[in-house]
C-alpha cells in the first residue's frame, strides 16, 4: 500500500511532539510502573508495605482530607464570585475575569512565597492583628494544615471560578423571573432554580480542583509540616532521602490511579471534552 503525501503530511507534523512525549513522559511513566513491581525482582512488597504501614495510609488520608478542604474552600469562595460575575454585563465580566486569571500566569513558587510572607509569625497578617490588639501573641498559621489549605485554595481558585462561571452564564435569567412570577421570593428562586442548574459547574470545578490538588507538591512542601505530609511529599522523601525507587514508584502509581479515578468521575459527570473546550 502506498500512502500518498497528503496522508503522511499531517502525521509528520506530529513527530516532534510524539518524540518528546515518548522520551520524557511515556518512557519514564512505564519505567515507574515497572519499578513499583520489579524492583529489584518481581514483587508486591512495595504495595504491601504501603497497606501494612499505618503511617503511609495516614499520608494518603491526609492527602484526601486536604484535597477535600481545598475543594470546598474554593467552592465557598468561588461560587459567590462566579455568581457575581455571571450577573454582570458581558464586557465588565470579561474584564474582571482577566483579573481572576492573571495570577494564574505567575509561578506557583512565587505565589506560595507571597503567602508565606503574609501568614508568617512576623508576617503582615500577624502584624496587623497585633497592632490592632486583637491577639497578644502572633498566630501560628504558617507550617500547618491551615496554611497549606489557604495557599492551595488561592492557587486553584481560578479553575473553580472558570468552571462555575461558564455554566452560570448559560443559565437563562428568564427562569428566575418565571420562578418569581410563580410566587418564589428572590432567595427561594435562587435556591430552587439557580443552584440546581449551576450543579454541572460545581461538579466540573470541584473535580478539577480535586484532581489538581491531590498531586500538589510545592505549596504543601513549603507551607506545610511533616505531620500533615501529602503523598507527593512522601514520594519526594523516598527518592531524595531513602533512595527507595521501588516504594516511591508504588506510591506514585497509587497517586496516578487516584487521579485517573477522579478523571473518570469527571468524564462521567461533566464530560472530558468540556475540559478542553473554550467556555460555552
Amino acid at each position: 500500500m502506498i500512502l500518498s503525501r497528503k496522508a503522511v503530511g499531517p502525521w509528520l507534523l506530529l513527530t516532534p511532539a510524539l518524540l518528546f512525549l515518548c522520551i520524557f513522559f511515556v518512557y519514564p511513566l512505564c519505567n515507574m510502573l515497572a519499578r513499583s513491581a520489579f524492583d529489584p525482582a518481581p514483587t508486591l512488597r512495595h504495595y504491601t508495605r504501603l497497606i501494612n504501614e499505618p503511617a503511609y495510609l495516614r499520608v494518603l488520608l491526609t492527602t484526601f482530607e486536604i484535597s477535600l478542604s481545598v475543594t470546598l474552600s474554593a467552592l465557598v469562595i468561588g461560587y459567590p464570585l462566579a455568581y457575581f460575575l455571571s450577573q454582570l454585563k458581558l464586557r465588565t465580566a470579561n474584564f474582571l475575569m482577566v483579573l481572576v486569571i492573571v495570577p494564574y500566569f505567575t509561578s506557583v513558587l512565587v505565589r506560595t512565597y507571597a503567602w508565606m510572607v503574609l501568614l508568617g509569625t512576623e508576617g503582615i497578617l500577624n502584624q496587623v492583628l497585633l497592632g490592632l490588639g486583637l491577639v497578644t501573641r502572633p498566630l501560628a498559621i504558617m507550617f500547618s494544615r491551615t496554611s497549606v489549605v489557604i495557599g492551595m485554595t488561592y492557587i486553584l481558585l481560578p479553575y473553580m471560578v472558570l468552571a462555575l462561571y461558564s455554566v452560570m452564564r448559560g443559565i437563562d435569567t428568564h427562569l428566575l423571573h418565571a420562578a418569581e412570577s410563580l410566587g418564589a421570593g428572590r432567595i427561594r428562586a435562587f435556591w430552587r432554580v439557580f443552584v440546581p442548574l449551576s450543579m454541572p459547574g460545581v461538579a466540573a470545578g470541584g473535580l478539577l480542583v480535586a484532581i489538581l490538588s491531590i498531586g500538589f507538591f510545592i505549596t504543601p512542601a513549603l507551607m506545610g509540616n511533616q505531620q500533615d505530609s501529602m503523598i507527593s511529599m512522601l514520594i519526594e522523601a523516598q527518592v531524595e532521602t531513602y533512595f527507595d525507587w521501588g516504594f516511591a514508584s508504588a506510591l506514585a502509581s497509587i497517586l496516578l490511579a487516584c487521579t485517573l479515578l477522579l478523571f473518570l468521575a469527571y468524564d462521567r459527570m461533566v464530560g472530558l471534552n468540556r475540559l478542553f473546550e473554550a467556555k460555552q
Binding site: D172, H174, L175, H177, A178, A179, E180, S181, L182, G183, A184, G185, R186, V193, P196, L197
Partner: peptide, 20 residues
C-alpha cells in the same frame, strides 16, 4: 409589590420551563 406577591400568571416567550 415584587412579582411573587402580585399573583399573576406569566407565560414567557421562550416558555421558561425549569429544565431540571
Amino acid at each position: 409589590l415584587p412579582p411573587g406577591k402580585r399573583n399573576l400568571g406569566v407565560v414567557f416567550q421562550n416558555y421558561s420551563l425549569f429544565p431540571h
